[in-house]
Nucleic acid binder design. Sequence first.
DNA 1: CATGAATGAGCCTTCATTCAT
DNA 2: TATGAATGAAGGCTCATTCAT
Lengths: 212, 212, 212, 212
Amino acid sequence: MQAQVSQTPSKRELQKEVRRNDIIDAGFEEFAVQGFTATKLDDVAVRAGIGKGTIYLYFDSKESLFQEVVRKNLFPMRDAAQIHAAEFKGSATELLTIHFQRMYLGLHQDRMPQLVAMIMGEASRFPDMADFFFKEIVSSNQELLQNILKKGMESGEFRDNFPVEFTQILMAPAMISAIWRLQFESHSPLDMDAYTQTHIDFVLRGLKADQH
Amino acid sequence: MQAQVSQTPSKRELQKEVRRNDIIDAGFEEFAVQGFTATKLDDVAVRAGIGKGTIYLYFDSKESLFQEVVRKNLFPMRDAAQIHAAEFKGSATELLTIHFQRMYLGLHQDRMPQLVAMIMGEASRFPDMADFFFKEIVSSNQELLQNILKKGMESGEFRDNFPVEFTQILMAPAMISAIWRLQFESHSPLDMDAYTQTHIDFVLRGLKADQH
Amino acid sequence: MQAQVSQTPSKRELQKEVRRNDIIDAGFEEFAVQGFTATKLDDVAVRAGIGKGTIYLYFDSKESLFQEVVRKNLFPMRDAAQIHAAEFKGSATELLTIHFQRMYLGLHQDRMPQLVAMIMGEASRFPDMADFFFKEIVSSNQELLQNILKKGMESGEFRDNFPVEFTQILMAPAMISAIWRLQFESHSPLDMDAYTQTHIDFVLRGLKADQH
Amino acid sequence: MQAQVSQTPSKRELQKEVRRNDIIDAGFEEFAVQGFTATKLDDVAVRAGIGKGTIYLYFDSKESLFQEVVRKNLFPMRDAAQIHAAEFKGSATELLTIHFQRMYLGLHQDRMPQLVAMIMGEASRFPDMADFFFKEIVSSNQELLQNILKKGMESGEFRDNFPVEFTQILMAPAMISAIWRLQFESHSPLDMDAYTQTHIDFVLRGLKADQH
DNA sequence: CATGAATGAGCCTTCATTCAT
DNA sequence: TATGAATGAAGGCTCATTCAT
């Protein structure tokens, strides 16, 4: 008579998952604004609307909460980019264009700029985190871009003498734009659409196969 | 008995200046490695070879010491760049090349990468500092580069349709290289000479006047 | 339908009693190993195979659980000793010998050494418990031993000038052996059979009626 | 002209030593009354009349303070006993008598009973401490007593069939008396002079060479 | 001027107890 | 009844800042 299917999570389990997410989101906000060290778990708790001790029912420590925050916010972007690239049918030029447009969308979503800035600034003091970040995010992105470059070189769209190991040169303006908006938006706002377009255009010019 | 001439600083004043500099240098090392929040004034004192209390004879607070550290380490680079650009006689292409080479030299000198990373990561939490950093360093650099661009456009070396307000696009790879080396050098080392050359070459290609 | 006779406990009441005992046993294990302060009710619950909140359905607080643990584990020993002494037919020498042998058996049973050590170390911080322990266990044991001594003095087996108020002198080696094994077994193990025999022999020599 | 002799500690160093001792003494009081786990460093600080943080200028942690407390309070007793035994000229019976009298004096001095009770109760949860205690105090005491026993056996004062490895049997009543006074003094006070005398007398009877 | 001992506010983490389900 | 999620007070420890020497 028990019609309870084991796959459907109980109401309680659902509630726990929701709560866990609330904490991650609250942590995201706080970490992004305050940075890791300066963030107080008290503030995270207040923002999540829970008691301070509750955080420890879901996470082992401040650091592990931080890892989850990074994970939850960066993985989807990475995965979406990979899937898109794998499925894309079209020229390398088009793919690179769309890939960069998507990168800008992701980087300026919500509090992503803060997250990026925080990781750049504090990762080196948490070797585990730098490790995790490099392996899960950075190298995957690098590889993705390298594949696009190789594709373009094979098709003759891109010059074949650009050193593919220096993908940083191509992506850097996107990262810097995120930091810029975080730090200097009030001093000198950035027209992101124009910036994005200029950046992509600049990259395509720089990669264009040499005339002869 | 004191025939002290007011213009020449007394031995005591010289001594004070030296001491002040020692503290700034020690602070630089510590802030660069640990970041602002994680740096202990105890460590700064030890590194400077003085007592902890002495710091407060020269600086009002941890934060004001930090400001001085930034000031002292970034001003010379900026000033040297400005002087060089003003005095340079030659093509815009050459000037831009040399300017970038100097920028890389400066950025990878000593602990500059850490300083850059730290500013990027923590500046937003110290509005005064972000302010100072923008006004004294960023905008000056931007202006300098814009002048080079305009010069090149006027001489016909560079295409005149690159939006000069987006100098970030041109400089970003240099900033990112500093951060990369700080965070990921152990995961994936960067050949800086090749990187620098590739970057400059890429920029020049991107700015090259259109063929017709 | 319920033909429940009030004198026979219902199945439910039996179940409650069983559950209560499970908790006490789990508490015993944990308190004995960790001590009172260091024991977490969480661990007790896990060991008892129940939820943490359930403990509060059976006990008012951690402290009251502790009292029950002590009560349940020391009463049987005390009662068995009293019954045995009351029923014993034989010489005082024999009775004392057997009484001590039983004491050793009890003291080294299971986790009794830990319980003894814990009471010795922590009882003073729980006046109620010290009270309870003194009234229910200590004084009863003292009285029992005093009765044996008096019996032996009357029968001429023991010298009559041993001050019966100092039964501690006779029992101490047994208590200390329990603590020794708990704390120093790894440093210097104790051959309990030989120790017991030596102790009893020593006591009998010390009590032996003077020669003349 | 500097007449400062390097051996004389400066006033500041003296002050530090005094302060260090104050903290140890305050810690002694608190640990003895509350036990290790229940003692708050706040309370130690208040008792020592200093700020909470000051403790950490002198000790690394609560546990290391505890070690110092034990060290400072137990070492003198141990050393004095060893010196006395080494210098003593007289019979083994006299030596043992005096040794025990001194042991009682030491054990009931100040807060020594509490310290003993605390070590007995909590040592097992701090393996380092149990280790330290066994090596520095227990085994030294055991050895000392064994030497006295051997001396008496050689001189014919004591029977030679008492197993010298079981010195616990001889010393236990002294330890137990300390605990008794701590826990049950209010329920049943102990006349320590009579107790001591009875114990020594009992031990000497038990060790007395057999008549023949 | 220089020192470093002293301070105490502040933060992460734990855990007995409560209570909605 | 039983559960275990939630709470928040409490404690060990850190560190910027002060101040007596």
